[in-house]
Design a protein around this nucleic acid. Structure first.
Length: 576
RNA sequence: GCGCCGGUGGUGUAGUGGUAUCACAUGGCCUUGCCAAGGCCAUAACCCGGGUUCGAAUCCCGGCCGGCGCACCA
């Protein structure tokens, strides 16, 4: 399968529909718009909300990974610690000839012996670039430009003037790591536990091109799962989940293929190295299916070693096939202990979690508490050295303290000291556990791309019987479709409207998301809601007046069924 | 960011120095008995800014947005 299966026209069709019907709007459109920013219209917001709700059902409700909400503006220190302030920046250079911008580190790597120029400081990179005399990839002229840094984070000031720098968060994850010292107490210091967050993140992309697929402000749903390095999630429940995997080995082959397997087998065969990562691949697979991503246009691709982020040791991306080709919709990454370690270093806060040993470990320890009021007067300036020598001796040769006196050598001289003066004590020490830095497994979802994939995968055309024209229909899963149902009077006369309005309000009272539509002929209204993706339409007709039944029409089959008004709510709830 | 191409009602379009065509959609009224029926009426557009010109949607320049190619995507 490849991207040619979808023509670029599909993207245009989806976007045209999405704009016209109220799914997606270009942001600031009346001022010309800014690329990389899109708004959700009424239907898009509802669709996204439903998708997020199902995500919460999986992760927060079922798995018990509590959700928090942290600020979108981050203090500078956060991103210094996370490595984003440095590592998230690209060093660019400008060609004097054509004016194009290029990655300075790439040019250096390509045109000199330097192999890994990525992490180099700017000055050094500038020097290397000058020496490399690299030709411009676009026009061929030798690059002599300065090296400037372009940070993908939006910068802002906190407080007046430039008193304090802040960044709009480039991922929601850091908020969780930064609150970890509180969260570990919330979970009463017991690993493993997980913390989720859903929210916006920002990346100042140089030139986002692919419409809604690359945004400068986007929505993430992330889980940080904290566990002991040797613990793995129990895969049992998900062993049989079918997945399509695209591991590194296959990607490196010319004609590499997607493996159709189960997560259980993938782990047994060593395709997915860790059960914990396999677990979240399986959860993802089930969730995608539930929200209406087409399983045949979904795969999980293992990151090639060189595309892993600075923190990740292994990573599998969920990808959907769209008119933009395969696009990344989520990643399941092993972030190791990187983030907590960095924040612990930078903040000085204890972020390790105390782990009790199954059995307390008992060790013998030798305590030396030299009596400085004796040693001081006797040795003067050498007193501290004598004390140190005693401590060394206690550690290396506790037996030396068994007599009345010990001998230590300081500055070439041997001193004899009363054991009583040294405060020597041999004792047992019980260690009941140790502080451990948790390992982090992170499933992270790009909600906007997922919403887009759901819309595009839903789009279909068919020709119902008794119809002249082709019908455009969004076959969206009822679990996520913006409207649960629409209510129509068959015609707008003979008192059908008040009855239809009554039916509408009964459905609303039951908590269903309902649209009422009396405009135009009935067929037109069916088509309108087909294109919106409303799974069921309820029509009030003349029989309703007689026997209190309505027609429920199924969006996908266009089949109709008589249902008693009193049973309508139950009927619809069963099917949505 | 660079190069090429483009931007006309909500959507799709016609037109190309003298303010704009048509269809669909939308709203109202009439009509309507289950898959985009019909009639009448109405609403509604030249991406933004500057220049040239008596006059610019049209020509020129810049910007913004979009498409393609290059570059970028931690």
């Amino acid at each position: 399968m490849n991207a040619d299966d979808e023509t670029p026209d599909v993207y245009e069709e989806v976007i045209e529909l999405a704009k016209r019907r109220g799914y997606l709007y270009p942001s600031f459109e009346i001022y010309g718009g800014v690329s990389g920013f899109w708004d959700y219209g009424p239907l898009g917001k509802e669709l996204k909300k439903n998708i997020v709700d199902l995500w919460r059902d999986r992760y927060v409700v079922e798995e018990g990974f509590r959700e928090i909400e942290t600020t979108t503006v981050g203090a500078e220190q956060v991103y210094e610690a996370s490595g984003h302030a440095e590592g998230f920046a690209d060093y660019l250079t400008k060609c004097g000839g054509c004016g194009g911008y290029f990655r300075a580190d790439h040019l250096v790597e390509d045109h000199s012996d330097v192999e890994n120029a990525d992490g180099l400081p700017r000055e050094e990179l500038a020097k290397l670039l000058a020496d490399a005399e690299a030709p411009c990839p676009a026009c061929g002229e030798t690059i002599t430009g300065e090296v400037t840094d372009f940070n993908l984070m939006f910068e802002t000031n906190i407080g007046p003037g430039d008193s304090r720098k802040g960044y709009l968060r480039p991922e929601t994850a850091q908020g969780i790591f930064v609150d970890f010292h509180r969260l570990k107490r919330f979970y009463r210091e017991k690993l493993p536990f997980g913390v989720t967050q859903v929210g916006t993140a920002y990346r100042n992309e140089i030139n986002p091109r692919s419409g809604v697929v690359r945004l400068r402000e986007f929505n993430q749903a992330e889980l940080e799962y904290f566990k002991l390095p040797d613990d793995e999630l129990d895969l049992e429940e998900y062993r049989d989940v079918d997945v399509r995997l695209y591991p590194v080995g296959e990607q490196e082959k010319e004609d590499g293929e997607v493996l159709e397997t189960t997560v259980g087998e993938a782990v047994d065969d060593g395709v997915i190295a860790s059960e914990s990562i396999a677990y979240f691949v399986a959860v993802s697979q089930e969730w995608y299916t539930e929200i209406g991503v087409d399983p045949s246009r979904l795969r999980f691709r293992q990151h090639l070693p060189d595309e892993r982020a600075h923190y990740a040791s292994d990573c599998w991306d969920g990808e959907t096939l769209t008119s933009h080709g395969w696009i990344e919709v989520n990643g399941v990454a092993d972030r190791g202990t990187y983030d907590l370690e960095r924040h612990m270093e930078h903040s000085g806060e204890e972020l390790r979690v105390f782990q009790e040993y199954p059995e307390p470990r008992v060790t013998e320890e030798t305590l030396v508490d030299p009596d400085m009021s004796e040693l001081g007067p006797r040795f003067g300036g050498d007193a501290n050295k004598v004390a140190d020598a005693l401590e060394d001796l206690a550690e290396n040769d506790p037996g030396a303290f068994e007599g009345d006196s010990v001998e230590v050598q300081v500055a070439g001289e041997t001193h004899e000291i009363d054991v009583e003066t040294t405060g020597f004590e041999r004792r047992e020490v019980k260690e009941s556990g140790e502080n451990v830095l948790p390992q982090v497994i992170e499933p992270s979802y790009g909600l906007d791309r997922i919403v887009y994939s759901v819309i595009e995968h839903s789009l279909d055309h068919d020709r119902p019987e008794d119809s002249e024209d082709e019908r455009r229909v969004l076959r969206m899963s009822p679990s996520v479709a913006p409207y649960d149902a629409a209510v129509f009077p068959l015609v707008s006369k003979d008192g059908l409207e008040p009855i239809a309005e009554d039916v509408e309000s009964r459905l609303r009272d039951a908590g269903l998301m309902v649209d009422y539509d009396a405009s135009g002929a009935i067929g037109r209204r069916y088509r309108r809601h087909d294109e919106i993706g409303t799974p069921f339409t309820v029509t009030v007709d003349y029989d309703t007046k007689e026997d209190d039944t309505v027609t429920v029409r199924d969006r996908d089959s266009t089949e109709q069924q008589r249902v008693a008004v009193d049973e309508l709510v139950e009927h619809l709830e069963e099917r949505t």
